[in-house]
Design a protein around this nucleic acid. Sequence first.
DNA 1: CTGAAAGCGCTTACAG
DNA 2: CTGAAAGCGCTTACAG
Lengths: 333, 333
Amino acid sequence: MEVARLAGVSITTVSRCLNTPDKVGKKTLAKVRKVIQDINFSPNVLAQSFRRGRTNIILVVVHEIGSWLFADIMEGIRAVVDGRYSIILTESRPDVTENGTFIDMLVARQVEGVILLCSPLPFSRKLIELAKSKPLPIVIGLEPVSDDLGQFPSVHIDNHQAAYDATQYLIRLGHAEIVFVSGPKNSYVTKDRELGFLAAMRDGGLTVDSDRVIHSDLSANGGINSAIEILARPSRPSAIFCANDDVAMGVMSVATKRGLRVPEDLSVMGFDDTRYAALTNPALSTVLQPARDIGMKAAQKLLQAIERPDDDAARTEILPHRIVVRDSTALRR
Amino acid sequence: MEVARLAGVSITTVSRCLNTPDKVGKKTLAKVRKVIQDINFSPNVLAQSFRRGRTNIILVVVHEIGSWLFADIMEGIRAVVDGRYSIILTESRPDVTENGTFIDMLVARQVEGVILLCSPLPFSRKLIELAKSKPLPIVIGLEPVSDDLGQFPSVHIDNHQAAYDATQYLIRLGHAEIVFVSGPKNSYVTKDRELGFLAAMRDGGLTVDSDRVIHSDLSANGGINSAIEILARPSRPSAIFCANDDVAMGVMSVATKRGLRVPEDLSVMGFDDTRYAALTNPALSTVLQPARDIGMKAAQKLLQAIERPDDDAARTEILPHRIVVRDSTALRR
DNA sequence: CTGAAAGCGCTTACAG
DNA sequence: CTGAAAGCGCTTACAG
């Protein structure tokens, strides 16, 4: 290359100056570095990637960006991954076509590892297949893993227990008619939360009719629709526990528009403790997930899987949750 | 390669089957394709990228993810970019180390183009320098461009006019003491909005003391701090116009906690019309930016710049805005 | 329509 | 500590 010629050394030496400078003589190093400076040379990353068989790119699959929960997780991931890897962010929304290609990218070694912040079904299946043939650097974050994906390391809170705790908190406030607005039926996370809710109700000696759990798409709109349905019932619950904060915001907005006072007439509880939770009116009681930590731990596990595939990482790591009490929940009147 | 051997053809032919199948005989094509199927072959993308000098990766720089505004823009970008390019998302927050490397990625041709959804200063300078030496596929979205960056195509609304319209709307409601909570002082977008606000005030025959514009970091927290400052003043404004919805949410939460009724005691207006705007209590009046369109147009411009660099794209494209009236603004009492 | 050959810009044993 | 040479897996004129 140019640099080698100008510095009067071999290409090999230039390469060494770039990658293993301590294996090069002091003078040579200085000389080469000067030339690199002078002509403002930077190595062709494409060639390097090709030659090394590594791209230093990792993929993060989220359900959809635009949520502070994911943003905070991303921040954690970035803090760990730092300058060592670039991150390609992909949404797993059904309407996002990129979905299919993410597997391809893995196969073609365009990315070196994946952090799955959601584990929708079509993905899972393909992953299992792939994992059969070779070890895959994948870690699941946020969501508990399905049985299928149990082989991959994961980082999340104990969703069952967290929902149990939140429900128990509502019960202790005197609520007996509580509705849980869950997520989609095929979601593992919300299934766990649903079971935690049911367990707490049972342990509290409360009966739970089948209409006490209703499903939503975890969006604010989903919350709106759910609230409309719930509030149209002959007997109104005194508390609604939502599978995430967005749903809770939707529920609150409907309740307020119907003239119900939160929390006097209706307690509303969220899940996630996203940044908007403290800003709603009234401020939302919710369950905190340590989003940044989840991101960091997931990234750490992934880097380990990539760089030291032999060290068998602890399979799954459970992070602590916390009930955050604000103003949207109160003693039952 | 393996495939060539098994199919009994040359590597050249295999390559052609993959890239220009119409230049290959029908029978040969079928034969090769079968082998590809059989051994589940997929070309080494790294080698392709290297050889072609293209990565099919574009970079999107946002101020920070976790905002629906950016999420919606991203959706627009994705809709256009489709399966043709992968997207690397980078945040330009000062604490994100990746910042510096994005220029490197451009230089090293690791990415083929950039959509800048924010144009912070250190970036701009480096970009200018780069642009001197070679044509850079860059488009600015959302933000008007600084003079420096004027050479790049851009897509955004007329922020000056939008803020003018919003302010005029407030004035027509009878408000005279209006405070504008702007963004950081070095932000071009919010500067435009600020000027629009001032122009409308002037045209409305209203005097504007210097404390009628205050700066924030465009976060909800920034809104909170601003509101605290504003509401501590001896004479309280009857309306607060915020440079974005997050700030407005912060402002409303403070106002509400202080016992002020929105909009009866205080009108609050936002900007962006993010998904949460309709969910606040009361629902937020705001200025709609066509986020998805901005993303689509920006992506279209970028692809054109990448693929047909000679066609000189229209330099800047102004998209329509719209005042969205909800419940947080009302006639002055 | 097909193939032999050169080459993309690096890295990495290997030899000195 | 340094260099000559091979090779990573493709693509692409060039020739037939």
